[in-house]
Amino acid sequence: MTVTRREALGLAVGSVAALTTLRFTEPAFAAGDALQDAIMEFTGGAQPGDGDITIGAPEIAENGNTVPIEVSAPGAASIMLLATGNPSPGVATFHFSALSGAQEAKTRIRLAKTQDIIAVAKMPDGSAITTKRSVKVTIGGCGG
C-alpha cells in the first residue's frame, strides 16, 4: 500500500482534530477535583505553599510519549508529580530515605497534550510545598 505525503499529513491533522473535540466534551471541573483530591491525599490535608522545589522539563516536547522530567526538593520526604492534562493526573511519587544522596529524581513521562506539570513535596515536618511548570507538547502520548 502506498500513502502519499499529502494523504499522510491529512490523516495526522484529522486525528489530532478528532482528539481535541473529544477532550473538550469532558467537563473541565471534574479533572480539577481529581487533581485537588490527589494532592490532598498525598499531603494528608496540608495546603501546599511555596518553597524550594524545582521541576526541570523541556519548554517544548516534540514527542509526548517520552518527556524527560526532573524534580528536586532539598530536604523533602517524598515528591509527587502530576500532569494536569492527562486522562488521570497522577504520574509518579518518589520517596526518599536517609541514604538518598539528594532529594531529586529524573524520569520520562507521557503527556497527552500541552499542559502544566505540578510537583508537590511533602516535608518531614508535615508541611508541603508545590510548584508548576508548563510544557508544550507537539504530538501527544497516551495512545488515542
Partner: peptide, 16 residues
C-alpha cells in the same frame, strides 16, 4: 517510586 500509567514505556529512573 510509585508509578502511574503516565510514566513512559521502558521506565527510566535516575536518583542519588
Amino acid at each position: 517510586a510509585n508509578m502511574e500509567p503516565s510514566v513512559s514505556a521502558n521506565p527510566y529512573i535516575e536518583f542519588q
